[in-house]
């Protein structure tokens, strides 16, 4: 067995095992940590097939940002996961049936795997001496500019949605206004009071 195959089985095995632990572990914080382990292993798999840019992206975006954000949410929210699992046994037969059907379908699909006529021709080997990032950059803003811009609009909608649904303008809240702070003069800030001697303010 070559070294690459050894690493493939290592990464793939750990990824599947930790993905299972994500749903199996009782403590939600452990779940998120296992999720991070899954991502790291997946990025290892990407490196094995020579997609180092995607591997780094996975680590930076998913591990660095998304999973950490997840961790914060899990720690901040008081979600009773034991209570959430109460109906587990009740739904097990139906869920198990659906899962079994999915598994059977996957086996059937993988068992009958044969590439279409166009596939083997369409797969282009990476040009030597050009890094992944350059190659993605070359098509992302030319051939795929429509998808790139449209995906940007989807993100814009997500941002508007998050603000619309959560931002509340409350009355009676003191807000910081930097221009007002900067424009303060001595006259506005200090009030000189002549205090008669022998009396308090």
């Amino acid at each position: 067995m070559s070294l690459a195959a050894l690493f493939f089985y290592l990464f793939a095995g750990v990824a599947v095992a930790s993905a299972f632990m994500v749903i199996a572990s009782r403590n939600p914080v452990h779940s998120v940590l296992f999720l991070i382990l899954t991502f790291v292993n997946a990025s290892g798999l990407f490196i094995l097939i020579g997609a180092e840019y995607l591997a780094m992206l996975l680590v930076v975006v998913y591990v660095g940002a998304v999973a950490v954000l997840f961790l914060f949410v899990v720690m901040m929210l008081d979600v009773d996961f034991v209570e959430l699992r109460q109906g587990f046994l009740q739904y097990l037969p139906v869920g198990g049936l659906v899962g079994f059907i999915f598994l059977a379908e996957l086996v059937l699909v993988v068992g009958s795997w044969s590439f279409g006529q166009g596939v083997t021709g369409a797969v282009v080997a990476p040009a030597p001496g050009v890094s992944n990032a350059v190659q993605i950059g070359r098509v992302l803003y030319t051939d795929y500019v429509y998808f790139f811009q449209a995906a940007g609009l989807v993100l814009l909608v997500a941002m508007i949605g998050a603000i619309v649904l959560t931002l509340r303008h409350k009355e009676n809240v003191k807000r910081q206004s930097i221009p007002v702070q900067n424009a303060r003069t001595k006259a506005m800030a200090i009030d000189v009071v002549k205090v008669p001697s022998g009396k308090g303010l």
Partner: peptide
């Protein structure tokens, strides 16, 4: 993804 995988387009 299945359609892409089996037709290549």
């Amino acid at each position: 993804s299945l359609i892409y995988g089996f037709t290549g387009s």
